[in-house]
């Protein structure tokens, strides 16, 4: 993919959440079933509300039907 503007990365020392805004269809599954309420809807796309609250349970990544959200370990940048 040449243009990567649609890839939004939110990161802290522990966590890195990558959201592909082009693939996200706004079904709200990740927002609804996040036990920490880390995510929220902004318009018709999911965004990170508070990265520090994420406990990396991976449920959003497991349940995202559109391969649009990815949780990995933060690099501290």
């Amino acid at each position: 993919m040449k243009n990567r503007k649609h890839i939004v990365i939110c990161e802290d020392a522990k966590t890195r959440i990558t959201i592909n805004r082009k693939w996200c269809k706004g079904c709200e599954i990740c927002v609804e079933f996040c036990p920490q309420k880390t995510l929220l809807m902004e318009g018709d796309k999911a965004v990170v509300r508070d990265i520090a609250s994420c406990n990396r349970c991976m449920l959003c990544e497991l349940r995202c039907p559109d391969f649009a959200i990815e949780v990995s370990e933060g690099t501290g940048r």
């Binding site: 890195r16 082009k22 269809k25 990544e61 497991l62 995202c64 039907p65 391969f67 949780v71 370990e73």
Partner: peptide, 30 residues
């Protein structure tokens, strides 16, 4: 941590045609 799905996907075909909230994507991931 962070599973690399792209290894098994034909990325040029994505995003898939399934409707928002459809469970088929979850099955495909699994």
């Amino acid at each position: 941590m962070g599973f690399d799905y792209m290894k098994y996907l034909r990325e040029e075909k994505m995003p898939h045609i399934w409707c928002p909230g459809c469970g088929h994507g979850i099955v495909m991931k699994a």
